[in-house]
Amino acid sequence: MKFKIDKREVLRYLQVSKKLDDEKLNFLIDKTITEIKDLINLRYLYQKFPIKITDQGVKVEGTTLSLKGESIRKHLKDSEKIYIMAATLGTQVDRKISYYEKISVTKSMIFDACATAAIEGACDYIEAQIKKEVLAVGNEDISFRYSPGYGDLGIDIQKEILRILNAPRKIGLTASKYNMLLPTKSVTAIIGVIAKKIEVEKQKELLNLDSEDDKEDDNIEARDLEFEQRHCKKCLLYQECELRRKGIYCGAKS
């Protein structure tokens, strides 16, 4: 398997914020990480598109897609091109989750966490490939990946994204009428191509923390503020999120 499943991520998805002090459970997690590797059938694709930022939103040229909302506009404001990617671990992983749901709640929870860590790991791997491609061109780089469901970018565009990539036919990735990606351990994302110079500046900016957003100073040692800047700030549930407050986080994709 070309990508890794990070055990720390698995623990994070299991809402474990410190060390897991249980030999049996640790063994079970290790076993599950090995088990899931045989069930993963990673399929992915990505394609580059020129974009045009207008008042109505971000128009993806050569396609019928127009991305609406402020957050994606902000995210792509320095880009003229984007990559749209889609990835899935396949149906066998889902089938196993369903199987364990009937056998053991603990096992199903662990397996599910491993699967989520796996698709995230896969996306990091795919993103690295895209980065390589972009860097090879010269003075360009990529921004981070942005999925429907982040900020005010609604998930109602899932079907269209998949249609543009011909994902159902090519990698068996579909969206239900509730805009849920199926198989469930799947991701679609938009990655902006930016000038290299800007990327460095942006990273610097991101690491500066806006004091107004950190109203609750509770638990600040346990929290990963950089992560929050990169991900949580854009989320619809930013204010209410218990997991963020506890420093556990979710990374759950809708």
């Binding site: 914020s17 249980d22 053991s104 709640v105 603990t106 929870m109």
Partner: peptide, 14 residues
């Protein structure tokens, strides 16, 4: 109290 976490809770429940 945060002495154990969700996996242990669920394991006990099971």
């Amino acid at each position: 109290k945060g002495e154990i976490f969700l996996p242990q809770l669920v394991q006990s429940a099971e």
